[in-house]
Amino acid sequence: MLKAENITVRIGNKVLLDNVDTQFQPGKLNLIIGPNGAGKSTLMKVLSRQMDDYEGVVTYQSVDSKAIPDKALARMRAVLSQNIDLAFPLKVWEVVMMGRYPHFSGAPRQLDEEACVAALKFFEVEDMAERNYLTLSGGERQRVHFARVLTQLWYPMPEQGRYLLLDEPLTFLDIHYQFQFMRKVIELLQQKDLVVVGVVHDLNLAARFGDVIHLIQDGRLVASGSKEEVLTEAHIEKAFRLKPIIYREKQGLRLFFE
């Protein structure tokens, strides 16, 4: 389990996160939503330890993240960031193999290569394996990086758990790949040691796929729980300053905005 305990982040006088206290269970799709500037990205950076100037504690399976060595953390925690450029041309498989870097020294072992092949297949990018990354479109790159972070966490680690953090993973994907991507993530969640936390902007996607939704506004955690609990008219209107119409149907929850 991944826990954020009383996280406060200040930069100068500005409070970016105000006493955020929540937890992320394995086997569930945890989605963070909130308006622009609410502190979603800051929270992701605190969770992933890309930022360490905060009050409070982040724990990975009850271990303070600040106490975990760099390499050990890289073996159990992967982050999908947005918009990654490469400084030099590399083949797609070389990029995906980077996910295994924390796991081997010297040359990749057979199990590293197998993880690579499997992740490429899982995201249906195996045909691109030999292509130059720099010639790919934005959406293709996004899928390649998803294969990369998955390669990083390919093998189960029941002791420490595995932690996959997705910072707006859907930005460059069309609707087909957005759905495909979310379904793949849900497929991954059958592996019980995997904690997935993602930031999404599309509330309908959150309503469609999220198991636990965390709503952040002005640096505070406003609500956290099932979609029925969090995606209410009152919460949404307050956070996004738009009055929603929410339909509760057999297929799930749907939001419309006037």
Binding site: Q50, D70, K71, L73, S81, I84, D85, A87, M98, Y101
Partner: peptide
């Protein structure tokens, strides 16, 4: 990039 390198340990 530097951020990604750090994420890989």
């Amino acid at each position: 990039g530097e951020d990604e390198a750090v994420l890989l340990g």
